[in-house]
């Protein structure tokens, strides 16, 4: 076998095994998108009911006051929570959400305030560490299947920092899973909780006999942190679904490219093989002619 043919065949083999890997990752990501979507769906009833309970408190008591709802006038430090993935190979997923995070921080600085960075996901941690940006807190190791306990841990830490005025606002950069083909990295304000979120749009009347146990204020004390944790959990779940959708898309592109490359390389291999045969035939024909010429002479 000629040298050229050998080289091309080796490349085909290597591209083929890469294709097998990317194809497997594509399939795994596809099945995880479905699971992640189911988790998003499963979390909705709780979030909905919690919001309704909160709205009931707001409606029954007329006006609500709580530290988590308070717009602070003198806010020097603003928290930015960036939700990224633990693993790469997800196309532009991480760079998109990190860009939103950077934009949020830029906006904070333009108001003359100091951003405080919180990061979820290994990729985000690596990004900020490389750039020497100090992180107040970071969490990693659960980006694909975020458990509720982690959301609770993150939410509790954020509320603590908010309570001691370490941060006076909190924004979150995460990726919204609109559909398997439309992912949108967005920035949202999580704290203080906007008054319109609590009041809601429902027009149910005030019920004279409504009971609260303990009082509405104490209930709110538990409801509002729970509400924030639920929002963090939703952001983690949306991001997890998006991560898998982005990975599936990236791996599909890689598989398609590998197929294309294999096609081109196969043509090259065929041509090299054809050339080799042509050379061999002309050598044989040449040799035979030389022999017959010698016999005649």
């Amino acid at each position: 076998m000629g040298a050229k043919l050998r080289v091309v065949r080796r490349r085909i083999k290597s591209v083929q095994s890469t294709k097998k890997i990317t194809r497997a990752m594509e399939l795994i990501a596809s099945s995880r998108i479905v699971k992640a979507q189911q988790r998003v769906e499963a979390s909705r009833p709780y979030a909905l009911q919690l919001t309704q309970a909160m709205e009931d408190v707001a409606r029954q008591t007329g006006s609500v006051a709580h530290p988590l709802l308070e717009e602070r006038e003198h806010s020097a430090r603003v928290g930015v929570l960036v939700v990224t993935s633990d693993r790469g190979l997800a196309g532009s997923y991480n760079s998109n959400v990190l860009k939103v995070g950077e934009d949020l921080m830029k906006e904070v600085r333009s108001r003359g305030l100091e951003p405080v960075v919180y990061v979820a996901g290994k990729k985000g941690v690596g990004y900020f560490r490389f750039r020497g940006v100090p992180m107040r807190r970071s969490w990693q190791g659960f980006s694909e299947v975020p458990p509720y306990d982690k959301a609770e841990e993150i939410g509790t830490a954020l509320i603590e920092d908010f309570a001691v005025h370490e941060i006076n606002e909190l924004h979150c950069a995460y990726t919204d899973f609109l559909s398997a083909f439309t992912l949108r990295a967005t920035g949202k304000r999580f704290l203080p909780i906007a008054a319109h979120e609590v009041r809601g749009g429902g027009a149910r009347g005030v019920h004279a006999e409504y009971l609260f146990e303990p009082g509405p204020a104490q209930i709110l004390d538990h409801l509002l942190p729970q509400y924030l944790i639920t929002k963090v959990y939703a952001a983690l779940l949306e991001s997890a679904a998006s991560e898998n959708a982005a990975r599936r898309r990236a791996m599909k592109a890689a598989t398609d490219n590998a197929e294309e490359l294999i096609k081109i390389l196969t043509r090259q291999a065929n041509r090299a093989r054809q050339d080799e045969i042509t050379t061999e035939i002309s050598e044989i024909v040449g040799g035979a002619e030389a022999l017959s010429a010698a016999a005649e002479g």
């Binding site: 408190v57 009971l211 146990e213």
Partner: peptide, 16 residues
Amino acid sequence: EGELGILAGHVPLLVR
């Protein structure tokens, strides 16, 4: 603040 039982027709209630 203690045990409670809910039957049909209970008044609106929010309890921790």
